[in-house]
Amino acid sequence: MKKSVSIACMIAAALGVAAPAAAFEPNRPVEFVVTAGPGGGTDIFARTIQAIIAKYELMKSPVVVTNKGSAGGAEGFVYTAGYKGDAHKLAFGTNNAYLLPVRAKVPYKAEDLTPVAALASDEFVLWVNGKADYATAADFVAKAKEGGLKIGGSQSKDVDQILTSMINDATGAKISYIPFKSGGEAAVQLAGEHIDANVNNPSENLGQWQADMVKPLCVFKSVKLSSEAKVAGDKGWGDIPTCKEAGIPIDNYSMPRTVWLPGGVEPDVVQFYADVLRKVSETPEWAKYLADTSQSPVYLSGEELKSAVEVDGAAVSEVLKREGWLAN
């Protein structure tokens, strides 16, 4: 392990010396490290980018995708961070890249990774069972204040549980949280009336919504979703009220889909990948991917991305601190 890392460093160092003038161009296969298992949201995110890069030949070197999703994605980030200065390893994740080191004792720090770009932003919707008699989010909150309601979500101390904690904090509700392995499980548990609500991403609950097994109460966003299409009967994403107007004073809560390089890479390397990803984000295929998975278009890189990461990291850390979930 150590050996291969040091070899990688040597190669990276040699490259840095050999080509300082010319703009960076990868000269060997680029590894896309997916920090989630096959089939998950992050996996589809990375593989869609891989397919678009191949179709438009945005990069000369081939792309190899590997899944390293254990320990909530920490496996992939630790792996990527271990290749310090290697310009051929990209990690694909969400905000878990900078959240994991805050809430769990993982052997890497957020500073061990270099942010490249954020390409999409996945929204959060408050869902209840289709047969539930809540008409609005305010009804739900009123019931939740009495206690005994359960929200199920993906992973522990991750985005879903943080949002649950924020709802409790903002409204004075006493909702408990039950962690499952994935959002898909939480969706089915809700459809089967085993939990009272979930805060799944739109794509995770779409199938159940279409069958009227679950229904959305509000979206955690400052404005309504922009999609016009009627995806479930006569309703579409654009018809879901924002949570703020529906009775939960949380303005904006979303999950960026992010791409990272190991720490210690040259600025022109970061620039190169940021450019490639920007070109990806401008293709019709990307627009289709966003529409299919009901995510919002975002493209952030450079300083913009850094400050967004800081703002989001600080906001979430505050919740973690309040709940006593800080690892250190």
């Binding site: 096959p38 089939g39 998950g40 996996d43 589809i44 593989r47 869609t48 794509s203 779409l206 199938g207 159940q208 279409q210 069958a211 097994m213 991917y289 299919d292 998975t293």
Partner: peptide, 13 residues
Amino acid sequence: GGLMIWGLTPGPM
């Protein structure tokens, strides 16, 4: 994951 990419929504419908 494939179903979603092909434009199908896995689910009861």
